[in-house]
């Protein structure tokens, strides 16, 4: 199976997010970077599928040159090669992002044959547009199942499950297909040291797509106003148990 997995470099945020002075970006001076959680699982799913069924996996990202770090991370757990669509740090909206991905996918498919499966995360951790995977699938004319938390593929048949109200909705389609996954579909592995070393030698194709205005232009970001809360310390250690039970009574949650 020939699999493509699309990922995005995002900052690793902690207890709060600080913005730059102009509000157009997150202040990342003191932050590390990672891929969005859903995509971490998409990479793991791609690797599991080729381990079981053979074939190869390619990782694709649109981002600054530093996003090579996330492509290497994907390759360190078993992705074979990667494509970096290098940007100059400008914000790309979902329409422009999808178009750049589609162009790169078409070029790669013209050279090396079609991808049987294209995996995305359901939505990115930062922009959360919920649409790039859907747009890419539409442009390529392939079926797209979103929000998948269980995936099985046999003889070109796809069964995908989506969580719904504690149960599952079951979808079926056939390859080639586009699937957007959610965290929980698997538990991603940690890269091994030999894996990291191998990843350094794997090929990355670097392309420079042309930015265009896709119609959704970010002006600035801001932190939402949250109600100030004043914490009441009930006590320290096990001695606070009485106060806790009194609180449960007061809040009416004792059944």
């Amino acid at each position: 199976m020939n699999i493509l997995v699309c990922i995005k470099r995002v900052p690793e945020t902690g207890a709060r997010i600080n913005l730059t002075d102009d509000g157009r970006a997150i202040d990342t001076r003191y932050l590390g970077f990672t891929v969005s959680p859903h995509e971490e699982c998409a990479v793991e799913e791609a690797v599991r599928l080729i381990e079981k069924q053979g074939g190869q996996a390619t990782a694709l990202t649109l981002g600054p040159d530093e996003a090579e770090e996330q492509l290497r991370a994907a390759m360190s757990i078993g992705v074979d090669n990667a494509i970096l669509l290098a940007t100059d740090g400008r914000e790309w909206d979902p329409v422009a992002t999808a178009q750049a991905l589609v162009d790169a996918i078409r070029d790669r498919e013209a050279e090396q044959g079609p991808f049987d499966l294209i995996l995305f995360g359901n939505e990115s951790a930062d922009a959360g547009g919920y649409q790039v995977g859907v747009r890419v699938a539409h442009a390529l004319g392939r079926p797209c199942i979103t929000g998948v938390k269980q995936l099985s593929i046999e003889d070109g048949r796809v069964e995908a499950r989506r969580e719904a109200g504690g149960g599952w909705e079951v979808y079926e389609t056939s390859l080639p297909a586009v699937i957007t996954v959610k965290e929980g579909i698997n538990l991603p592995r940690y890269p091994s040291l030999p894996g990291r070393l191998r990843a350094k030698k794997k090929p990355i194709t670097r392309l420079e797509p042309t930015w265009f205005d896709g119609g959704l232009e970010m002006i600035r970001m801001k932190t939402p106003v949250e109600e100030e809360s004043q914490v009441t310390i009930l006590g320290h250690g096990p001695e606070a148990a009485d106060k806790a039970v009194a609180l449960f009574k007061e809040l009416g949650v004792l059944s």
Binding site: A125, D126, A127, I219, R220, K222, T223
Partner: peptide
């Protein structure tokens, strides 16, 4: 954005 941790004007 960020699941509600940030807002974006666009």
């Amino acid at each position: 954005r960020w699941g509600g941790s940030l807002l974006e004007e666009a």
